[in-house]
C-alpha cells in the first residue's frame, strides 16, 4: 500500500468522519496506481483543510473558498498531474460557490471532495450553505432562514456532463469506491460526503 502520510497525528475530534476520508483518499490513489509524486492535493480552510498537514504529497493549503481555482491552476499548468481539491461545505458551497459554478460550467478536469457536515466547525459551529432551514447555530440563534443547497441538483442544472454524487460520509468502502470513480472521470467531478459534526452537529434540525 502506498504511504502518503506525513506522520503528523490528525487533530480531528475522536469519531470525526474526516478520518474515513483521509484513509479513503490513500486507498483510492493506491487502487488507481498513481505515483505519489503525480498527486497534488489542494486544501481549503476548515477542519478538513487541516488534513494538509497529515499528508506527505505535493500539496497546497490554500485560502478559504479558493481550493477550486488553485487546483485548476495546478492542473492547467501540468495536465499530467492528478489534482484533487478538498474542502468543506463552507468553503466550496459558500465562499467559493462562484468558483464551483465556473468549474462545473467549464467541466474543469479536477476532482472536488467536500466534507459536508452542514456547519462551519473549525470556527466552532455557525450555519453553512447546507445547514437545514430553521437550525439554531451560533450565528443563527433564532434559527436559520435559508434553505440548504443541494449540490447534486445544482451542478446537474449547470452542466449535465459533470459527475456529481452525494454519499454517506460514514461508509469507508463507499468513499473509496466513489473516489476511484471520480478520479477516473475525465471531466469535472464532485463528491459530496454527508457527515455529522461530532462536536457541533448534534442540534441541527433534521
Amino acid at each position: 500500500m502506498i504511504n502518503l502520510k506525513s506522520g503528523i497525528t490528525p487533530t480531528w475530534c475522536p469519531g470525526c468522519n474526516n478520518f474515513l476520508l483521509f484513509a479513503g483518499i490513500q486507498q483510492a490513489i493506491d487502487q488507481l496506481g498513481i505515483a505519489k509524486e503525480n498527486v497534488v492535493l489542494v486544501f481549503d480552510i476548515g477542519c478538513i483543510g487541516n488534513m494538509a498537514d497529515f499528508f506527505n504529497t505535493y500539496s497546497v493549503h490554500s485560502l478559504h473558498g479558493r481550493c477550486i481555482p488553485t487546483a485548476l491552476g495546478v492542473k492547467l499548468a501540468n495536465p499530467k498531474l492528478t489534482v484533487i481539491a478538498i474542502g468543506g461545505d463552507g468553503g466550496v458551497y459558500g465562499e467559493g460557490m462562484g468558483h464551483l459554478i465556473a468549474a462545473a460550467r467549464a467541466d474543469a478536469p479536477i476532482t472536488v471532495v467536500v466534507s459536508d457536515n452542514h456547519l462551519y466547525s473549525l470556527t466552532t459551529g455557525q450555519t453553512s450553505p447546507t445547514t437545514p432551514k430553521g437550525s439554531k447555530t451560533k450565528s443563527t440563534p433564532l434559527g436559520s432562514i435559508s434553505v440548504p443547497i443541494n449540490p447534486v441538483s445544482l451542478l446537474h442544472t449547470i452542466n449535465p456532463d459533470v459527475m456529481v454524487d452525494s454519499i454517506d460520509g460514514r461508509d469507508p468502502q463507499l468513499i473509496t469506491a466513489k473516489l476511484v470513480e471520480a478520479l477516473k472521470h475525465p471531466g469535472f467531478s464532485l463528491l459530496d460526503l454527508q457527515q455529522i459534526c461530532v462536536t457541533f452537529g448534534k442540534e441541527l434540525s433534521a
Binding site: 479558493r66 481555482p69 495546478v74 499548468a77 501540468n78 462562484g98 468558483h99 465556473a102
Partner: peptide, 14 residues
C-alpha cells in the same frame, strides 16, 4: 480572485 488563485496554483506546478 480566481485569476490570482489560478496563478498561485500554476506557479506551484512550475
Amino acid at each position: 480572485i480566481a485569476a490570482a488563485s489560478l496563478c498561485a496554483g500554476a506557479v506551484f506546478a512550475g
